[in-house]
Simulated assay, not measured.
Amino acid sequence: MDGLLFVGPKVKPFRRSTVGRKRRAVRSKVGLPDGFRFHDLRHTGQTRTTRPGAS
């Protein structure tokens, strides 16, 4: 496979700095704290599924 699933603004592969910059802008726009990481969502989901009554 040669195609890219996601490309940057210049139709080239995303660079780590581009992703970080965009993520910080969105994070502040929706009101998440500065220390929030995308990976934190995984922990939240796992915590909720272990509560009593979760299936």
Score class of each variant (00 low, 15 high):
Met1Phe: 12
Met1Trp: 12
Asp2His: 13
Leu4Lys: 08
Val7Ile: 13
Val7Leu: 10
Gly8Leu: 01
Pro9Lys: 10
Pro9Tyr: 02
Pro9Glu: 11
Pro9Asp: 10
Lys10Glu: 13
Lys10Ser: 11
Val11Met: 04
Val11Ser: 08
Val11Gly: 01
Lys12Val: 10
Pro13Glu: 05
Phe14Gly: 02
Arg15Tyr: 09
Thr18Arg: 03
Val19Tyr: 13
Val19Thr: 08
Gly20Pro: 03
Arg21Phe: 13
Arg21Val: 12
Lys22Gln: 14
Arg24His: 11
Arg24Cys: 08
Arg24Asn: 15
Ala25Trp: 08
Ala25Gln: 15
Val26Thr: 13
Arg27Trp: 06
Ser28Thr: 13
Ser28Gln: 15
Lys29Ala: 15
Lys29Asn: 07
Val30Asn: 06
Gly31Thr: 04
Leu32Arg: 04
Leu32Ser: 04
Leu32Ala: 12
Asp34Trp: 00
Asp34Arg: 05
Phe36Cys: 09
Asp40Cys: 05
Asp40Lys: 03
Asp40Ile: 03
Leu41Ala: 12
Leu41Ser: 07
Leu41Gly: 08
Leu41Tyr: 02
Arg42Gly: 00
His43Trp: 00
Thr44Asp: 05
Gly45Val: 04
Gly45Pro: 00
Gly45Met: 08
Gln46His: 06
Gln46Phe: 01
Thr47Cys: 02
Thr47Ile: 06
Thr49Glu: 05
Thr49Asp: 09
Thr50Phe: 04
Arg51Glu: 15
Pro52Tyr: 01
Ala54Ile: 07
Ala54Arg: 10
Ala54Gly: 05
Ser55Asp: 09
